[in-house]
Design a protein around this nucleic acid. Structure first.
Lengths: 216, 216
DNA sequence: GTCTATACACTGATAGAC
DNA sequence: GTCTATCAGTGTATAGAC
């Protein structure tokens, strides 16, 4: 076996380990917060000796930084549906569906992001100022176009975006409260569908993006 | 001076100190999380020696517990406007205004609450199961009545409540992100009014609680 | 590359002088 | 009642054996 192949195989093993650690770290950071999480807890969850973590990630903060960055990139990729839509009902509806699916499948990541922002974004402030700000301005332009074309009411695009973020991420960040109010059980398929339907009904009706509001 | 008066004066001083410590603790817990907060940081912010904290609150957890309980009682009291309303537009509109005012004036408290829930509500689980569950069921009944009386569309009351909580608390819990997207400055009076107006416009229109949707 | 043992800093909490 | 000095425990990070 030549050197390149050997390096490649080692690189693969390394990436597997890194992914394994990142997955465990995401869960522990979500459950305990940055300060409450310990390298010992993460190591136990990843089935590795504590010291090995420092071999793959030099410091606790570097590991945390990687977790948060991964989540943010995930958010961004999932928002592509917004642009390719022909109408606000289609674009915003698909965006709500996509974000709700993320809240269901990646609740831990959403919680880490929320915690990071709540504590003043100590490690992703630059990302907020550059990438998120840019993304937001672009989406505001799309919404403005829809308004100008008479496809929806004249609402404030920025606050509409905040409402979309808040409402969808609430089902991840406050999942424990929602479960408690659901009799201690996670929402089942029907309940998740009801949530998506309710959100879309209220918001799409609220911004005048539906042909005729339901007169049920 | 008799004994009762002396005890009363001492009790007053003690309550002042406790309030002083609780205020500092709320801020530190909000900024750093439970694990990231230290008794030293709280003592510094309250201008007291570290050991004195243990004189008023036996443990760090007891102090934290008191902070969270105070916040929850605050939430509950501020929600009275919901019941005394004659219509959904009036009741829900006033509830949105009240919750947005809390998000503006008590952002730190809202963050501590959010963090507590995100981490699985280790200290207020019983409160969630009893007081919050009861409050929620009562409000759902009020909304159901409004629907039955034809004053609003047939939407899912529970998910409407979650949307109201998510949207209003977002302005407190994600205030740092919102500030960053606002050019690094806090929202001014006009921006807060715009937020309240946008939320009420979308939700009240969305649930069919307004006489005629704005055709702007 | 991997893991054991350990260094060093810091935390929550307390004992005891005032 | 208040504060200084200190303890015991724990956390991150690393040195060094294998």
């Amino acid at each position: 076996m030549d050197l390149a192949a050997k390096q490649s195989r080692q690189s693969e093993r390394r990436q597997e380990r890194e992914a394994q650690i990142l997955k465990a770290a995401e869960k522990v950071f979500a459950e305990a917060g940055f300060g409450g999480a310990t390298m010992q807890l993460i190591a136990d969850m990843a089935n590795l000796p504590k010291a090995n973590l420092h071999y793959y990630f030099p410091t606790k903060e570097a590991l945390y930084r990687q977790v948060v960055q991964n989540i943010f990139q995930f958010w961004l990729r999932a928002a592509d549906v917004f642009d390719s839509a022909a109408s606000p009902a289609e674009g915003i509806g698909a965006y709500i569906d996509a974000k709700m699916e993320i809240s269901r499948r990646h609740a831990a990541g959403s919680k880490v992001w929320a915690s990071e922002v709540m504590h003043g974004a100590p490690v992703i402030q630059d990302t907020l100022e550059s990438e998120l700000a840019e993304w937001t301005e672009d989406r505001i332009k799309v919404i403005r176009q829809w308004i100008d074309q008479g496809m929806m009411n004249d609402i404030n695009p920025r606050h509409l975006l905040y409402m979309l973020w808040a409402t969808t991420q609430h089902y991840a960040d406050f999942s424990h409260q929602i479960e408690t109010l659901n009799g201690g059980k996670p929402l089942d398929n029907a309940a998740w569908e009801a949530a998506k339907t309710s959100i879309k009904q209220i918001i799409l009706t609220g911004i005048g993006a539906l042909p005729s509001p339901p007169e049920t």
